[in-house]
Design a protein around this nucleic acid. Structure first.
Lengths: 121, 121
DNA sequence: CGCTTGACCTGGAGCGGCTCCAGGTCGGTA
DNA sequence: TACCGACCTGGAGCCGCTCCAGGTCAAGCG
C-alpha cells in the first residue's frame, strides 16, 4: 500500500505520515525499488493508532517513547499498557472539560435567548 | 484585579492573556497609572470564556471574530449565538472521537492482558 | 527616607505539530 | 516515447503559545 492510500485509511495526511517517519514514530517503513514508501496492513494499523492518540492530544514525545518500547519487544508490554491506562485517564479529563464547556455554552445561549425575548416584548 | 490573579481565576496563563490582548481577543483592557493591566469581574468572565473555548479547540481566528461581534453590540447576538451552537456541535464531534479512542485503548489493553496471560500459562 | 524585592512591562526568540511549496525522480498508460 | 500523476526531499511558513532578557515601578522594611 502506498502513502496516499495509507493516509486515507489511517486518517493522517500524507505530509503527517512523512513527518512522523522523520520523527521516529513509525517502527519501520519499507521502500520499493523506486524509493517509495510501502505500508503493510500492520503499518497502517500502527498509523491508525497514532491517529487516534494524536486526535486525542497525546504529545509526539510520548508517542515516540511508545514507538521505542514497541520496537524493543514484548518485555515492554507492561509499560506500554500503563501508557494506555494513563492516556485513558487523560481522555476522561478531556471529556469532562468538553462537558463543562457544553454547560457554559448552553448558559450563554439561554442568556442570548432571554435577551432576545426582552427586545420583542 | 491584576494579570496574575486574572490568570489564576480564568485558567489562562499570564503570557497567554498578554498574547490574547495583542491579538485583539479582549474587548478592552484598562491600565492603572503605572501601565499595568487591570481586570474587572467582567473582564475575568470574558477570559474564562476564552479559556473554555480554546481548551475545547476553537481557533483564535474564530474567537477574534466573536470578540469583534461582542464589541459591535447587541445587534450581533444572533450571530454570536450561532457560533456557540456550531461550537457545541464541534464538541459533540470531539467527544465522539474521545469515546472512539477509549474503545481502541481498551482493546489494546485487553490484548496486552491476553498476551501476558499467554506467557504465564 | 532610601533600598530592596517582586510583580509587572515590552519585544523577540524558540518550540510543537503540522502544512505547503519548489524542484526533482520515476513508472505506467496512450 | 512522451507524458502525466504520484511519489520524493528539504525547507519555509503558520498557529498558539511559552520563555527569556532587560527594564520600570510601587510597596514594605530597616
Amino acid at each position: 500500500m502506498r502513502v496516499s492510500e495509507a493516509a486515507e485509511v489511517s486518517g493522517l495526511s500524507v505530509d503527517t505520515i512523512r513527518f512522523y517517519e522523520k520523527e521516529g514514530l513509525l517502527p519501520s517503513v519499507a521502500r520499493d525499488q523506486a524509493g517509495r514508501r510501502t505500508f503493510s496492513a500492520q503499518d497502517v494499523e500502527w498509523l491508525t493508532l497514532l491517529y487516534w492518540l494524536r486526535e486525542t492530544g497525546m504529545p509526539l514525545e510520548q508517542m515516540r517513547h511508545f514507538t521505542e518500547l514497541a520496537k524493543a519487544g514484548d518485555a515492554t508490554i507492561p509499560e506500554r499498557k500503563s501508557i494506555f491506562i494513563r492516556h485513558t485517564k487523560e481522555l476522561q479529563r478531556r471529556k469532562a472539560a468538553i462537558e463543562r464547556c457544553e454547560v457554559v455554552l448552553a448558559a450563554k445561549i439561554a442568556f442570548y435567548d432571554r435577551k432576545r425575548k426582552g427586545w420583542k416584548l
